[in-house]
Design a binder for these strands. Structure first.
Lengths: 347, 347
DNA sequence: TTGAAAGCGCTAACAA
DNA sequence: TTGTTAGCGCTTTCAA
């Protein structure tokens, strides 16, 4: 029979060392080896030394799978990145990717491993699979999209799950997210303070987080005694082309605008390039603010004014919330503060 | 005793369903359930239906850990991203992140899960830990850095491992990488063809991949009957600041140059911004080429001429090589073709 | 201080 | 076609 790569059985490769081997070589029982390796004080100091030495020199490590089974424990967390069905959008937005790094750090800090998977956003049920099969103690989902209901179903099934996203009414699952309303407010207020009057908004307001940023945008306008103009709000996807599409759409609408608030830095960047292609200079003709404060924003030309999302804190908060939940404790959703970073694209 | 989050034992949360439960409810033995769920034909069609129906309605899934233990199989691959000790550089370069996405896709395609970890580049031994503990069948390492020797040691220990990076002499481990020499050659030749005479090189030639790109650069100069000028080669890290540092260093050296070849797109981008700050226009005063062809390169201003690394192919190749190796078969290292993408930054 | 034995949740001989 | 039994690699009672 052909051996599949998944099969570790006997082949040319020598058999994996196991506890029984160490026991035999040390002339003790596996119980003793187990205890020695676990640092139990029920074992003679001298034997303990000998066993540990043997294990180290033979590079023996305990089989975590077997250990987990016996101990009914598990130190792995699932991280799921949904992808858009149509675009099959690859793990592409730098912000999500930064979040991944931040989660990796936070999990490592807590001594947990990370099982990463990509799941069709339309089939979010699949996100629970690593949990259902006992591989992970719970799941962190990066990106809520518009699948509120599916997420509620998972929560109703008691799948420990924490979602990066916006807090929504009638939400059964736990979210951790930036304060999108105030983010939108800060950016828009800033643009208004710089004397801009007609501020376009780029983003898909069907997505909860974007909707909240838009709400902040409207609030800021209201503060200034202005009303939002539907002509100025352009729904675009989070894909990089979104920025270009949005600017072109505004042109098509024959819309007049002197500022632009994009719901991600990536969108802001591609928007700026399209503006440039239209012969409009940033910030002279159009002031631009983005969202996220990805690393490249500083290095872009012009450097991007943006709303910073607290990414390191986010990773830690997501992990903390998940671990709480896995312990069976109830956790409340949480909003992290956002901060306006002013750079040259708006001043 | 306080319950740790890793502990799934009895608490408020109801006990996890297991095969014995399904068996009892279906009035059959666990063997039968096992067979039914595995789709064995050793079980009566009608019982099979009943069992499957029951499992589905109760949302029962087989515990993979137990199954793996029993079957001595495993369908998880470790992906390790080394981080630089000093900078503790977070998963930051878009290229590596893209690679992660590509690996996730390739693994999913093959029905494998991905265990992601970050390890200190100085402690690459740690990369083997998920393998040593039996969690994964092998490890894919993104980024070779300068740790050739440690990698050789892992290979000598028969840890199935595949590294994204350059092929080196006396290499015991398997690498998959872009053809860096020809990448460097293509970019440099292109700049020369555009009439540039003094081409600066940005990158840390202590890193094998960068060294090869530099070799390609030298080869192209040689083709044109020119010799490399040490003044024009600036060692900079892969961190975003690297580009700025490099351009400033060239200024400090009082170096004259009319083109710049950066060993990553990120470096090229930050270099361009620094050039701009110095009042030098791209490509008029300095033509710039990058490396990687990250997504943003198209949207940068000016759009970046660059050497495209075949990232989707890379993911598939890395995974294929690892699976081969995990089966105990020997695999040869492999170079994937690179391609010059000409955009406005150089013409 | 140690070892024998049972069992974590599952699968596969083997027997019926 | 099904159930009984043993055992994957480990930990932990229990008895010595």
């Amino acid at each position: 029979m052909a051996k599949s790569p998944a099969d570790n059985g006997a082949s040319a490769q020598q058999r994996r060392l196991q506890m029984a081997d160490i026991a035999r070589l040390a002339g003790v029982s596996t119980s003793t080896v187990s205890r020695a390796l676990a640092g139990s004080k029920l074992v003679n100091e001298e034997t303990r030394q000998r066993v540990m030495e043997l294990a180290r020199s033979l590079k023996y490590s305990i089989n975590i799978g077997a250990q987990n089974l016996r101990l009914k424990q598990n130190r792995t967390v699932g991280v799921v990145v949904p992808f858009d069905t149509n675009t099959r959008q690859h793990l592409t937005d730098p912000f999500f990717l930064g979040m991944l790094g931040s989660l990796a750090d936070a999990l490592t800090e807590q001594g947990f491993d990370m099982l990463l998977s990509r799941v069709d956003a339309e089939e979010l049920d699949a996100a629970a699979q690593p949990f259902d099969t006992g591989r992970v103690i719970g799941v962190i989902l990066i990106g809520q999209w518009r699948h509120h209901d599916q997420l509620n179903q998972l929560a109703a099934r008691h799948v420990p799950i924490v979602v990066w996203g916006a807090q929504l009414p009638q939400q059964l699952y736990c979210t951790v997210g930036g304060d999108n309303v105030s983010g939108g407010l800060l950016a828009t207020r800033h643009l208004l303070e710089r004397g801009r009057k007609r501020i376009a908004f780029l983003g898909d307001v069907n997505l909860p987080e974007v909707a909240q940023r838009y709400r902040g945008y409207c609030n800021a306008l209201e503060e200034a005694g202005m009303a939002p103009d539907a002509q100025l709000c352009v729904p675009v996807s989070f894909l990089p082309e979104g920025g270009a599409d949005g600017v072109r759409e505004l042109a098509r609408r024959g819309c007049d605008y002197d500022a632009l608030f994009a719901s991600s830095d990536l969108l802001a960047m591609t928007a700026i390039n399209t503006l440039r292609a239209q012969g409009r200079e940033v910030p002279r003709d159009v002031a631009v603010a983005g969202y996220d404060d990805i690393e490249l924003s500083t290095y872009f030309h012009p450097p991007l004014t943006t709303v910073r999302q607290p990414i390191a804190a986010a990773g830690r908060a997501l992990v903390a919330a998940l671990l709480e939940q896995a312990e069976g404790r109830a956790v409340v959703s949480q909003q992290l503060p956002t901060e306006l970073i002013v750079r040259a694209s708006s001043v």
